[in-house]
Design a protein around this nucleic acid. Structure first.
Length: 262
DNA sequence: AGGACGCCCTGTTCGC
DNA sequence: TGCGAACAGGGCGTCC
């Protein structure tokens, strides 16, 4: 689930709930999620510290501690955050539970355990180590167009490659291409510059608007592809049945009429 | 080098 | 309705 708009929403949620509170205790439900730390090591790194800031790059959320170190949270396909009252019961599949001195908890919940939890000295170091491209909302228009024009890839693969652009996943990749009226298999090198600039603007619009909707599909325009991608959905623009195919090992929805290959 | 694929997990959805 | 199979919005390692 969590792509850039979801993670940005989690970031704002963490900002609004969990900053400037002393961390009392850390509990790990699934050690396999820890990328470069042991449960004990993570506990030591967080104990008696507090979060003072956050940063997001692509689908990664960074929570900065008061000693300068950072916790990295990646949400895989099913991860989310919840701030829990002292008496409230813990959500199922809580894989990381951070308890503050006021008794509240920050829970990282991930039923499929496909996420990642790590420690890093700086977000920049983590981004470089993982070779992530620029965040989709930080990408400059001229660089975007230049890189796209030079790519031999299909449009969807290119948008989803985190080394090219960080933050776009299957759902929003399909949405951006739908709104740009570009076929997901269309070779980027065959697209003229004004159309690439249009793609860039649509990328920004979709991501910004989805953040505004707090990444909640029910708050997004019905004219979007997103609410129609289940089952045998129809194109919200021309009402023809949507095509469903597999691109880059991901289920891809698009409208053959509105997004022609040629 | 870069693309295709299998795999990591487990809850949900699909199809018979 | 009930069941097993296939699938799910991500990313990594491996192979070619």
């Amino acid at each position: 689930m969590p792509e850039l708009p979801d993670v940005e929403t989690y970031k704002r949620y963490l900002d609004a709930t969990a900053l400037f509170q002393t961390i009392e205790h850390v509990r790990i439900g699934a050690p396999m999620l820890l990328a470069n730390a042991t449960p004990r090591g993570l506990g030591r790194a967080l104990s008696r510290r507090c979060f003072v800031t956050t940063h997001r790059h692509g689908k990664y959320l960074f929570a900065g501690l008061d000693n300068g170190r950072w916790v990295v949270l990646h949400f895989g396909m099913t991860g989310r955050l919840a701030y829990i009252r002292p008496a409230e019961s813990l959500p199922d599949f809580t894989q990381l539970l951070i308890t503050f001195s006021n008794g509240f908890h920050l829970a990282y919940i991930a039923p499929r355990k496909l996420g990642r939890i790590a420690l890093t000295d700086t977000p920049q170091a983590f981004v470089e180590k993982h070779e992530l491209g620029p965040d989709a909302l930080e990408f400059e228009r001229t660089a975007f167009v230049r890189f796209a024009a030079a790519s031999q890839s299909g449009a969807k693969r290119w948008l989803l490659d985190q080394k090219t652009i960080a933050g776009i996943g299957n759902i929003y990749g399909d949405e951006i291409l739908f709104q740009s009226r570009l076929n997901p298999r269309r070779k980027l090198s065959s697209i003229v510059k004004p159309e690439l600039e249009h793609l860039y603007r649509k990328m920004r619009y979709v991501l910004v608007r989805a953040i505004h909707a707090q990444a909640n599909p029910e708050r997004m325009p019905r004219s979007w592809l997103l609410p129609h991608r289940r089952g045998r959905g129809r194109c919200p623009r021309c009402h023809e049945p949507l095509q469903q195919s597999n691109i880059s090992s991901r289920t891809t929805y698009y409208c053959a009429g509105c997004q022609p290959l040629a």
